[in-house]
Structures are given as structure tokens and as C-alpha cells.
Design a protein around this nucleic acid. Sequence first.
DNA 1: GTTCTAGAAC
DNA 2: GTTCTAGAAC
Length: 214
Amino acid sequence: TSSMTVPKKRRVDEPTFTVPRMSWKTGLLASIRDVNFPKRLKTNNVVAIADKYPKARCHFLILPLNRYVRSLTSLTNCPEDISLLKELDSVGQQIAKEEKEKDSSLEFRLGYHAAPSMELLHLHVISQDFDSRCLKTKKHWNSFTSDFFVPSSQIILALESRRVLPSIVTDGHANEMLNQPLYCHRCCIQLKNIPTLKEHLKTHRAVSGGSSGI
DNA sequence: GTTCTAGAAC
DNA sequence: GTTCTAGAAC
């Protein structure tokens, strides 16, 4: 009869096997290759993008544009690699300078995570307010405020005096840094948890437009 | 890297 | 009971 249910045909484009999804680890590469993804600044060799989940009011990533560099340990002290690190730093400093011109209260640090999650070398340029809803976990906090965050200048100096960079940390040491207690990066007091830390950070914010009456 | 959420911490 | 964190994600 017409009311008989017909077995629904499987769509031909629906595979029965599991399609290996593109790993989240390659997201940065996908972003910089995507012509529709906004680029903050581009030079011959590097590109700057806004971090997708900024951990502060200003948070940018600077990446190699024409070269796949998996991590810092892929680099050697050849002139090309040294100049790449310097160009990443230089573009990072340029962006920090421009952002400071827009908001003079911002302070920036430039550095690399000792054990990054995302593939493709990326330099963090991050303002030190850490005022962001995306900053949610102890790991987030410690990855930017402990020695897990390695200054760009330090990396450049290290590679200039060595053939290759030693792996910056063992897995154990990385986890130790990421799991350490929460300390304020400004006054070093220890905070109980993330919400308490966020409340504490407000006390370090510059007082502006309050009682001055300007 | 994030999302989700169970269960620890309060 | 609510807040908060830590670990799985097929």
C-alpha cells in the first residue's frame, strides 16, 4: 500500500567507514592557508593572526608563512632559521607597538610555549592583563605566566649559541609547571582558584576615567 | 587546542 | 546544593 514504509536509502555520500577527521592540531596551518581567514599583518616570511581564543585583551600569533616548521626543535642555527626567529619577533614587536598606540595601558610579552599543543611554530604576542573569558583553566594561566612561557628573545639567544635548541622541557617538567598553584604574575600572591584569580587581577587594573573627572 | 560533564571541593 | 576542575573525546 501507499502507507508502507520504504527503507530509507543511505545517502551515497555517507561513508560507512569513519572518515579520519582533520586533527585539531593542524588548525593553525588551515587558518593561515585559508584566504578568507583574517590576517593581522603579513611579511615575506611570516604572518600574524588573532588567537581564536584570546587569553587576554590582545593576543596574536605570529607564524612562518611559506615554510612548515613543526616546532622550535626543528630549527638549527643556520642563517635562514635565525632570521626566521628574528622576523617572527620583529613582526610581534611591531604589532605590540601598534596595539599600545591604540591602548597605552597594554603591556606585552612575546614568547613560545615550551610544549605547545598546536603543530606549526607560533609566537604568542599577549597583553599582560589576562582579561578574557577564554582564560578558564589553571593550564591556561600557567602556560602564560610560568616558565612554560619562554621569551622570544631567550630563544633567539639560545639558538645563536648552539647548533640546535635542546628540547626545552621534559614532559614531566612541563606538567609540573602547568599544574603548579595559581600565582599572580604581578604580586606573586597565591590564589585559591580561577574565579578568585580573576577577581584579584581586577585589583591590578589601571584606574582610568574614575574620579579624575576628565 | 576546546567541549562536555562527572564528581571533587566548597 | 552549587561551584569548580580535570579528564575523555571511537
